[in-house]
Each structure stands twice: as C-alpha cells, then as structure tokens.
C-alpha cells in the first residue's frame, strides 16, 4: 500500500478515531489534535527514551571525569572545552549532568518499581481480601496519603541518615498508597465482571483469576500513571537532595548539584541552570510520553467506542 494510507491507519488508531483522513491524498490533513499536536508527543517519547539511554551510558560518554576536582578551572563559563562550564571545584558541569542522569533516573525507577509492586500487592489484597482487610489497608493508605509525600519522605530520609539510598527508601515507603488505591479501584471494577465469573466457573483458581484476568486490567492504567509519575518522583528525589537529606554534595545528582551551585549563583549561573534544565526537560518528556501512552492505552478511551 502507499504511504498515505498507512499514515491514515496510524493516525486513525492514534486518536482512536477510524477514518480520520478522507479525500485525495493532497487534500488530506491529519485530524487536529490540539496545537501541541502529536509531533511534540513523539519528540517527547524520543527524548524520554534518550534520557533512559543516557542513564545507562551517561557516565561512559561523559567527556571528563565528573568528580575530578581542579581548582584552577573553577567556575569557568560555558565554552567549547566545557559545554556547560565548570562548577566551584572546577568539575565539568556537562559531564556531571550526563552522569547525573543515571543517579537521578535510576533512583526514580527504583522508587517507581518498588511502589508499583507494593501498590499492586496491597491494592489487590484490599480489593479481594474481604471487608476487614480492605478497611484496614485503605485506612493505612489514608494515613500515608495524609501528608504531602515530600514531608513524609523528608522525615523518613532524615531518620535513615542523609544519603541518596535513604531518599529512595523513603520514597518507596511513601509512594505506594496512591497506587494501592488505583489498583484496588480497577480490580474492584472487574472482580465481579462476567468474564471473571466465567473463568471461575470453568474451574480457574483464585491465583489464576488474579494473574490471568484481573492484573491485566491493571497494567494499562498503572503504566500510564507510572510514566506520568516519573516526573513527580524525580522532582521529589532531587528536592530531597537539594534540601540536604538525599544525595550528598560531591555526588553528581541533579538536585545535589543545584544545592551545591547556590552559593555562586550570581557569578556562575551555569552551574545552577543546567542541572535544573536537565530535570525539567526529562520531566516534560516523561509527562508528554505519559499523556501519549494514556491516549493509546487508557481503557476508558478505548472501550467507549
């Protein structure tokens, strides 16, 4: 088939509207999807993927050692040798930002994975475990959600001792209640559905029902939420580092880098600007990617037609 037809199929499924393109190819237009359009979203998905790749290879492609102190090179403005300039200790900011991709994103991913596992386990248990279990688990969630997570994580991270590990552990412990609620809601919506009844009636055991029939309904919803939460978790983690209870100063973590650059803010803006930009760009990319995923996978969108 010719290219325009293929494109039409893609565009049709992208917004879930079949037959979005009509007429001869030269008169065809993509259906309007708002001024930001899908191009931006595709770029964002690519940027998000690039960030993930950077998190893996960042430390190896960094042009200079991100931890090498050279006081003779202190606070140099951006130049060809130092794309993002140097910080107060003469370390190359560009190399540190690249290395920081791993520190910050890895921490974020660990938090999200652990919180997802906890949330799925606890949410499923609450949805299927009967009234008492449900009540107890949901009240625990209420308590967890009764504080802004930054405050809870701040207290927990402090009690574990200031380090990136504590910040990650603290965030794992604070982030799951939201997921538990989400999973509970979705599983409850489906637990009495006819297809689940049918599975039970032909002899599927409880484990099989949960794994094969209920958890798959959770996946698209959680996938979208987790993608959207990359930015949120990253902001809290770097915030904890900025405040001083997360990654500690020599670490090439974006939040800690900003904290370390505060003192020289009026003479060396670059040491402050670039780590923050790195956070912002990554966060925008993941939020857009999440939006994009939501449109593609959200069952409420898909089922409604």
């Amino acid at each position: 088939m010719t290219a325009p037809t293929r494109r039409s199929a893609v565009a049709g499924s992208a917004d879930g509207r079949p037959g979005g393109l009509r007429g001869p190819w030269f008169a065809r237009r993509r259906p309007r999807r708002g001024p930001a359009g899908s191009v931006l979203e595709r770029v964002a998905v690519v940027v998000a993927l690039v960030m993930v790749v950077l998190a893996v290879v960042g430390p190896w492609i960094a042009p200079q050692n991100p931890y090498r102190v050279d006081l003779g090179q202190s606070l140099l403005p951006p130049s060809a040798a130092h794309l993002f300039g140097t910080d107060v200790n003469g370390r190359d900011v560009f190399s540190r930002v690249l290395t920081g991709a791993r520190e910050t994103l890895l921490a974020t991913v660990i938090v999200l994975v652990v919180a997802t596992v906890l949330g799925v386990l606890i949410g499923t248990a609450a949805a299927l475990g009967g009234r008492v279990v449900d009540e107890v688990l949901m009240r625990i969630c209420d308590i967890g959600l009764s504080l802004p997570s930054i405050v809870l994580a701040l207290g927990l991270a402090a009690s574990l001792g200031p380090s990136l590990t504590s910040a990650v552990v603290a965030m794992c412990l604070t982030w799951w209640p939201g997921y538990a609620r989400l999973v509970r809601t979705v599983v409850r919506q489906h637990r009495d559905a006819e297809y689940v009844e049918a599975a039970r009636s032909i002899g599927a055991g409880p484990v099989r029902v949960v794994v094969r029939h209920l958890l798959p309904t959770v996946v698209p919803v959680m996938l979208v939420q987790v993608t959207l939460d990359v930015a949120a978790v990253m902001l809290v983690i770097s915030g904890l580092s900025f405040v001083g209870v997360g990654a500690q100063v020599p670490a090439a973590e974006w939040g800690a880098m900003i904290a370390a650059a505060v003192d020289d803010i009026s003479t060396a803006w670059w040491a402050l600007l670039f780590p923050g930009l790195a956070i912002a760009v990554t966060a925008v990319a993941f939020n857009l990617a999440g939006d994009w995923l939501r449109v593609r996978t959200d069952p409420t969108v898909r089922w409604s037609r």
Binding site: S149, G178, T185, V295
Partner: peptide, 21 residues
Amino acid sequence: PDVEAGADNAAAAPVPVAGVQ
C-alpha cells in the same frame, strides 16, 4: 483525544494528580 479528561474518570480518580509533589 483529550489526555486530561481521563483524570476525572473513576479509573484514574483515586490517584493524586500527577506532576506535583
């Protein structure tokens, strides 16, 4: 294809809004 609209649907509602601490 309103990406935000889902936020108020029951499935997505219990999650605190994304993007903010």
